[in-house]
Design a protein around this nucleic acid. Sequence first.
RNA 1: CGCGGGGUGGAGCAGUCAGGUAGCUCGUCAGGCUCAUAACCUGAAGGCCGGCCGUUCAAAUCGGCCCCCCGCAACCA
Length: 507
Amino acid sequence: MSKFYITTPLYYVNASPHIGHAYTNVICDCLARFRRIQGDSVFFLTGTDEHGEKIKRAADAENTSVENFVNSKVSVFKNLWNKLDISYDFFIRTTDNFHKETVGKAIKILFDKGDIYKAKYRGFYCMPCESFWTEAQVKEADGCPLCKRGVEEIVEDNYFFKLSKYESWLKSYLKEKPDLIRPRIRYNEVMGFLDNNVLEDLCISRPKKRVSWGIDFPADSNFVVYVWFDALLNYISAVGFDRDEGRFNSLWPADIQLIGKDIIRHHAIFWPIMLKALGLEPPRIIFAHGWWKIGEDKISKSKGNIVNPLELIEEFGVSALRYFLLREVPVGMDGNFSYKTIINRINSDLANDLGNLVYRVLNMAQKYFSGRIDAGNVNIPDSFNSSLHELSKEYAAYMNEVDFASALDAIWKFIGVMNKFVEEVKPWILWKEAKTDELKWFLFSLLEGIRITSIYIYPFMPRVSESILEQLGLVPEKDIGLENVLWRKRTFVIKKGNPLFPRIDVD
RNA sequence: CGCGGGGUGGAGCAGUCAGGUAGCUCGUCAGGCUCAUAACCUGAAGGCCGGCCGUUCAAAUCGGCCCCCCGCAACCA
């Protein structure tokens, strides 16, 4: 049994969660659940990033205090994770006191070490947009990139973190660890960036007169900490950095940190350097997933905003949504989201293949044996044997590589084998000819095959897994575990339910 | 010449590193079956693998040139 520390990004609470937020956490949940049924000791962290002027402004816009605003947003996120069956172990908020203390402490450490210094910061400010821009951005847009109006050059004092000091270290470290940043395309992107740029030191403070909502900069109350610097540190503050050494040492480094591809630079460049400067190890893996592009089919237009994950759960159910997100596109690539694609997935994979298999088998078990089937003396069908053998080999390998699409594909191959088995054996004929032993062997094989399948499915669709096991007359808590995917003689006393996934008819 | 990814049957992808019958899912068409959610099973049609040139007995796969699409190009939380 090994430890497994997995993190999601901290979500910025200036707006409501969308499909992308849901996606990241579903990926992490799937990995976390996989490790748990493998017997690992999992610590799964998610949370919210709550500082910065944008949040202050969002609160002002709603005419409420910042505290009230972030509290209400946090409950929106927590509610979504609840509805999505996200099994996180801890929810960190950057407004948590312990976190704020850790951030202050980290800055002090870096300051004492000489890695933080005060200097003039030069930038361009757009008054109407209240946004800061770099010289390059202003030059390219010929003004404010947002509103195209003129910008004002501002020079002010700020604190800087010496990224530059660690540039060569980072380069050689990443060269030695080509698997740290995944998928490969992201690694190449980061390496290309490092090869073509000289790292500038990172401005990690904001003057309070401009940004009032943030963590106080240690020993200088005129400033708050730049939100990114604050937020990244959550990954170590949550597990006890500088607070609980034993706990921290048992969990850090994180085994995998999931992020969206848009925040690769912060996690692949700033973050490892911050850790190095603090004398800590970088995470083992930083995995960047792709984006869902919202398709424009007719149905989505008439239904309005389909990117709201709560509405999607309402409409398709949490299991189907999770399945779709994890199966449709390999993690790392971009995907297209539309009603048509999700309905196709649900109908073909979930309703036709899996749902119908479970239903038809349980139906026969009920009809032919009143729901009670024991193993008899006959062994596992050949086709099951080879298929399950292959599946057990591939499954863990794919899951460990975060290749969910392939893992599901491997599971579905076995589901195909079971559906084919029904056609080959022709139980309706065995029934007419009263070949009870053969029929029993046939049904036992399928029930046992379905039981094993339900365990493999668990990380993706925990509820479906549990529902199947209950219908098989088993106790999910006892049976879900990768040690139980072996073929065993037993007696099933089934409790047939409704179809797991009703087909969705499109007009 | 900024860096990187990609262009494969109607759609989405695999195969390209280690050249040698172009594979998968969905869709389409035909058939089979009836335990089942018009589900399941079988079979078929459909591709000169972006273009041109080259290497080779042989190229989607190697080399060169060109065309097109998409990311990144730092403080955006």
